[in-house]
Design a protein around this nucleic acid. Structure first.
Lengths: 307, 307
DNA sequence: GCACATATGCTCATAATGAGTATATAATGA
DNA sequence: TCATTATATACTCATTATGAGCATATGTGC
């Protein structure tokens, strides 16, 4: 193959150590969870070679064997190679990360992978009940770091919704990176282990990868009906709403949420109802996969000229 | 590091051959272009090792040395590893692809990389002047392939805007993949080289990667002001519009486009005007990078409850 | 029956969008 | 000079989408 990059002396050989890392998400009740290993301190990962035909296929098989449930949705997140911890000189570590959605969590029998709540690791991301605990300190710490630096102040305002800016739930990664820069997460200080940082730490850059996965999911849920990958077969409107709220970390307006789902015609009544809680029983719905592709990619935001 | 993947016998070693592939885009007049090597038959690529601190930094340096212009925007696209052409058994080929935006194309002196129009490779993607040439044959070929298969017919309708469905400019990759499945691009037939397929072929899966890059750019332009990365310092409204039209392959409504740009406050007048063409001279504008982050991420499409 | 709780439906002001029309300002040439 | 042409810029208006609040329906528990 003709390559342009070689001629510049950028590289000599392309050998690298390849690794897969998975952000596996599930939702239990109103708690979004992620699959972990190492007692909740790492995302599941492992080296990658050619025993499977494709990255995706291998990962899918593995996840299904681990969780006991099929992976509805599996998407590549990002490939990291910037680590300083290249163990051998001239041999690069490449980590390919994936986001997967699982309908239910496996029974945690026999030392199997554990599931932990997202917001243990990123507590500042949950705004469902107003400002999350520790918010004052967090903002104070960030402001101290920013000082009078115009650029830093602006980045903070934008990412954390300060000074009149609105909170944008999608900016999960920006927020983590700012906290890292500000030295307010444990990982930034070489895992000093003093419990000094905000939220529970993870090994290496795994918490950063988790943030990448959550950011992707929060963005995706707005134009693709991925939420149904996490729901049971039939569900009520409120269950669906609670799930979406759990993922994006915000409360939604009830009847407007209904209206939006309604007019997209993504779901249909099963005919049955629930009588679980006290109030009026809710109708049960099921997802209509037939229209999946056709709808759900609505908003273009460009003034396209028709005719 | 504790790994979960190892225990399942999925892998034994993680050694792989790593390669970088770049989709570099520029726009000349109203023609979007991509940088190529090998006489227009391949995207620039090369092996990757650890002589640079990060993937991104190395690629950036290299691009700037090649094009003579700084890369305004550089974003990872996708990592491919599913190729069957693993040259050595047990040694995986991993290709990490990037999308980069360049303001001007380099002077093509001395056998340097060439720039070619996107739509040479993907002619069915340009709908600025109505249906592109060869559209009838393309649809006929696809329909022949689909036959009476419900699934295929629906995928075609969705991706190509047939049977009442609207054309969605973002579905570049889906369209290429359908054409590949239908055997209507040369790459699907092992590069028979008969000129049998639609559009100009590329080596390996490079045309697929190009489609991935265009898809990403078309999607991104709707919520991030990336178009300015391709514009000169000052420009008129119409120039900006023509550029966006070139990228998305559609015509836009003039005054609505103005209004949308206007109310986002992304640009400001320079005070000068052009007198290039016959009509009334247009005002010149410049981009306002200060508000870049703050605006431009408008549409959430979720009924968030405020207060 | 009554209080309560939840589900579902309706209204309404405001904003965003798609489409079209009107006016302004230049070059060009009879 | 002055109509013609071409482009730029500014308004208008119907339709739809969105955010917010209120009203009604239908169950449980006592």
């Amino acid at each position: 193959m003709t390559t342009g990059l070689v001629t510049t002396g950028l590289v000599t050989t392309g050998l690298a150590q390849a690794e897969l890392i998975a952000v596996l998400a599930a939702v239990t009740g109103d708690a979004p969870r992620v699959m972990t290993v190492a007692a909740g301190e790492a995302l599941p990962s492992g080296p990658f070679t050619s025993s499977h035909r494709s990255l995706q296929a291998g990962l899918r098989d593995w996840i299904e064997s681990q969780t006991g449930h099929p992976v509805g949705f599996l998407e590549q997140l990002y490939t990291f190679a910037d680590r300083d911890r290249a163990e051998e000189a001239d041999l690069r570590q490449i980590s390919i990360s994936y986001l997967g959605l699982v309908r239910e969590q496996a029974a945690p029998g026999a030392g199997r992978p554990e599931w932990h709540g997202w917001y243990e690791y990123l507590p500042w991301e949950d705004h469902r009940h107003g400002l999350p605990p520790g918010w004052q300190d967090l903002v104070a710490g960030l402001n101290h770091w920013a000082g009078t630096d115009r650029g830093r102040v602006q980045r903070l305002s934008h990412a954390f919704g300060l000074e009149g800016a609105a909170w944008n739930e999608d900016l999960v990664l920006s927020r983590y990176e700012l906290l890292y820069e500000a030295g307010m997460v444990e990982e930034a200080n070489g895992h000093s282990g003093l419990g000094s940082g905000i939220g529970r730490a993870m090994q290496g850059d795994h918490r950063r990868i988790l943030a990448t996965g959550i950011a992707r999911l929060r963005a995706k849920i707005k134009y693709r009906p991925v939420a149904f990958e996490l729901m049971p077969e039939s569900f009520t409107f409120l269950q669906l709403q609670r799930l979406v709220e759990a993922l994006i970390g915000l409360r939604l307006h009830k009847s407007n949420f209904r209206r939006q789902i309604d007019q997209q015609e993504l779901i249909e009544e099963t005919g049955e109802t629930t009588a679980e809680s006290r109030g009026r029983p809710a109708m049960l719905f099921r997802y209509r996969p037939a229209v999946l592709e056709a709808r759900a990619l609505a908003g273009t935001r460009l003034p396209v000229s028709r005719g």
